[in-house]
């Protein structure tokens, strides 16, 4: 079993769960220092030729693709080369060595927050995430690539997972936002929001690895609530800022490298982008196991360790 991006928070969690039952091979640019002994880790760039050797020597049963670069600070070309070119190469090896399973972690962000979104987006909803925010383009393209691989290679069971905001002890935008003492909310907007615990996403990936499963699945957390309630329950106090001011301020902070939230992402604080997970419930048999209290407790645990 090959896991790309194994040194991320999700990759490590998944590897720790899988290595008892399966032989796990990890690929990442970063080192994996505290790994269990039986995990083979290759510290390589996925765009390098060495990837082919990893496929050649082994009989790989499944690939879990988590090696997606989300950092909005990186340049567009770097993100494109990492997220698209590397993924295309990976897909090439998959078809060449006839790997029977591919699980790709996409996200509900590919639908994009919009004022005219239905309250719950199904898997057939158009991927408009890049419409207002160009930084999403490569993530939407990645999702599309996985979809076209699904149709072109029926021999491989391709699963695309689109979870809502993943939070937990991970350092990503959504978790960092909920850790803030005074998170900014856009005045007059309070969209319903979904979050899901990182361990629930790991469980969904494990369920998706079962043979016979294929398709696109939205992954939802333990219930949705207005953003203000979520912030308060996480122990924060919302700071209400009118949207034009928030936009200008965030733009300036971004330029001065004081914030890593791009101003276009403010739409997440204004419009709904929630997913319907009925397909995951019936076909994947996935149910979120972590309650909202547990989710927010894990988010808060790292509050004062922020650097």
């Amino acid at each position: 079993m090959l896991i790309t991006g194994i040194c991320g928070r999700l990759g490590k969690l998944l590897a720790r769960e899988l290595h008892r039952t399966d032989r796990v091979v990890g690929v990442d640019r970063r080192p994996f220092d505290d790994r269990p002994k039986d995990i083979v880790h290759h510290q390589v760039d996925m765009r390098r030729k060495k990837m082919k050797d990893i496929f050649r020597g082994r009989n790989i049963r499944a690939v879990v693709h988590l090696g997606v670069l989300h950092d909005p600070r990186r340049s567009e070309s770097e993100r494109h080369s990492w997220n698209i070119v590397a993924f295309q190469k990976l897909l090439g090896y998959m078809s060449q060595y006839e790997v029977p399973k591919l699980v790709v972690l996409s996200g509900a962000n590919v639908y994009g927050p919009q004022p005219n979104n239905p309250q719950f987006l199904t898997e057939d909803a158009p991927l408009l995430g890049a419409q207002h925010y160009g930084g999403m383009r490569d993530l939407v393209e990645l999702d599309m690539l996985a979809q076209s691989f699904f149709w072109k290679h029926p021999g491989t069971e391709t699963v695309v997972l689109r979870p809502c905001h993943i939070v937990g002890r991970v350092h990503n935008a959504a978790s960092n936002y909920l850790r803030l003492e005074r998170p900014v909310m856009v005045m007059g907007f309070d969209p319903m929001t979904q979050v899901v615990h990182e361990r629930d996403v790991v469980r969904a990936i494990r369920l998706a690895l079962r043979p016979g499963l294929r398709g696109i699945f939205n992954i939802r957390g333990p219930g949705e609530m207005p953003l203000s309630h979520l912030v308060r329950q996480a122990g924060g106090r919302p700071r209400l800022v009118p949207s034009p001011i928030a936009k200008v301020a965030l733009d300036q902070l971004w330029k001065l490298r004081l914030s890593s939230f791009p101003a276009q992402e403010l739409d997440h604080l204004r419009y709904v982008c929630m997913v319907d997970d009925s397909r995951a419930r019936t076909e994947l048999e996935y149910e979120p196991a972590h309650s909202i209290d547990r989710v927010l407790k894990d988010v808060r645990r790292l509050r004062y360790q922020l650097d």
Binding site: N117, P118, Q119, F120, R270
Partner: peptide, 21 residues
Amino acid sequence: AELPFISTLYPRLGQVVGSPE
């Protein structure tokens, strides 16, 4: 849904953005 305050008030009163879904 694009208007501040209205977009918060309407859902709280049970109003829903008109879409077939």
